[in-house]
Amino acid sequence: MIDSTTSKVGAAIHARKDAGSGAVIGYLPLGFPDIQTSIDAAVTLANNGVDVLELGLPYSDPVMDGPVIQAATQRALAEGYRVRDTFPAVREIVSQVKTPVLVMTYWNPVAQFGAQRFADELSAAGGAGLITPDLIPDEGSEWMAAATAADLDRVFLAAPSSSETRLKQAVEASRGFVYTVSTMGITGARSDVDSAAATLVARLRAVGVDNACVGLGISTAQQVREVLAYADGAIIGSAFVRALAEGGLERLAAVSSDLASGSRVS
């Protein structure tokens, strides 16, 4: 069940909705190009209009990710990123900014670390919860129990192909928001955000979603504006990763401000 009273992420999204708009959720991989820079980059997003941070835990086989994010996370792994580096990085970020921090991770690193241990350490570090792209609620009972015990958000995905039953299941299993996949595909900038996204958000509303945030393919302020016209949040990933890779923190700050301007009520 969605319970925004204890979800820091839910509260942040609601604050932006109350202001007449919606939230901007920014993704960057941990450890790219190195751990300290990835911490600074997350802080940069938070200081330039991003309302919720989504930090990717680098993984060897990221099947939901396109080339930009794959390249960044493979680099982080090559530089020696370890799962245990996640917790001090989150702690450092939340000590600097009030923006809630979610971790986006494929399931196996959590399973090997131990789901409850991961939840407890993330909670102790001040993290808000997990987005789990290859864990469907059907396989998620261990994570649900661990997240509940540690009072963490759990963000599951909804896709244009999902049945009504599955949308309902995603809504009931999620806390914080439901990650609304805009298109049938993987991460990466697209010139148009699929019209399927608006339809999917409407279908999620029909089964009682609190916060439906749309991701995949959003890379311009105009797209943010369009998405926030019907959704509760817009998730931006590859565009930020590319900015960081090509122009460092300075370019990231500029791109972040620009994209976040799409969420400002005019």
Binding site: M64, D134, I136, E139, A159
Partner: peptide, 15 residues
């Protein structure tokens, strides 16, 4: 076993 996949694939796997 199981189905540890992105939600986008579940409908196709069901089908």
């Amino acid at each position: 076993g199981g189905r540890y996949v992105p939600e986008s694939l579940v409908a196709a796997l069901d089908e």
